[in-house]
Design a binder for these strands. Structure first.
Length: 158
DNA sequence: GCCAACGTTGGC
DNA sequence: GCCAACGTTGGC
C-alpha cells in the first residue's frame, strides 16, 4: 500500500467538509498540475492519505483519508462554466484525472507544519521542501508512521 | 501584505 | 530550444 498527502485550503474544503459529505466521500477535482496528476494516477484503491490544511491557522495535517476509487477523468475539465475548465482537453484523451477519497479518521491532535519541520525523520518530506507547492505528494512508510504517532492515531488507521 | 519558489506561456 | 515574463501557491 502506498501513502500520500493531499493539500486543501480549509476555507475551500476542509477535512470536516469531507467527513460531512455523502458517504464521507468526494471527488478530488481540480488538480491542474502534471506532477500532481501523475501521483493521482498512481494511487490505488485502499491507499491512505494525510489530509493537510494549507493557508490555514494553523497549517496542519488533520486527518486520514482513503482512496476509494482510482483515477478517472475529471469531469470539470469539460465544463465551460467550471473554474477548472480546460479547452485543450479532449473527451477521447482527457488531460486531467481525479480520484475519490473518503474520510477515514481525524487526528486526535492536529500536527502542525511547525511541528513537522522539527521532527526527526521527516527532513525529506516533500511537503517540507522549500518552495514545495505540489498539492498531491507521496509519503514514505516511515514518514507515515512518525506522523501518525504525532497525531495520536494508529498507522493503519483502523 | 509580502515575496520566494515554481510551472507555464510565448517571443525569438 | 532558450529564457524572460507572468500568474499562482502558500508560508510567514
Amino acid at each position: 500500500m502506498n501513502h500520500w498527502l493531499l493539500k486543501s485550503e480549509p476555507s475551500v474544503f476542509s477535512f470536516s467538509d469531507l467527513q460531512r459529505a455523502p458517504e464521507s466521500t468526494t471527488s478530488w477535482e481540480g488538480v491542474r498540475n502534471y506532477a500532481a496528476r501523475n501521483f493521482l494516477r498512481a494511487m490505488k484503491r485502499g491507499d491512505l492519505a494525510f489530509f493537510y490544511h494549507s493557508n490555514a491557522e494553523p497549517n496542519a495535517i488533520v486527518g486520514i483519508a482513503e482512496i476509494v476509487r482510482e483515477a478517472y477523468p475529471d469531469a470539470t475539465q469539460f465544463q465551460k462554466r467550471s473554474e477548472y475548465y480546460d479547452a485543450r482537453s479532449k473527451r477521447e484523451e482527457p488531460l486531467w484525472s481525479t480520484v475519490d477519497v473518503r474520510a477515514r479518521e481525524p487526528f486526535a491532535r492536529p500536527v502542525t507544519l511547525a511541528e513537522l519541520r522539527v521532527t526527526a525523520g521527516l527532513e525529506k518530506m516533500e511537503l517540507l521542501r522549500k518552495g514545495s507547492r505540489l498539492s498531491v505528494t507521496p509519503v514514505t512508510a516511515d514518514e507515515w508512521k512518525i506522523v501518525c504517532t504525532l497525531g495520536g492515531v494508529s498507522a493503519s488507521a483502523d
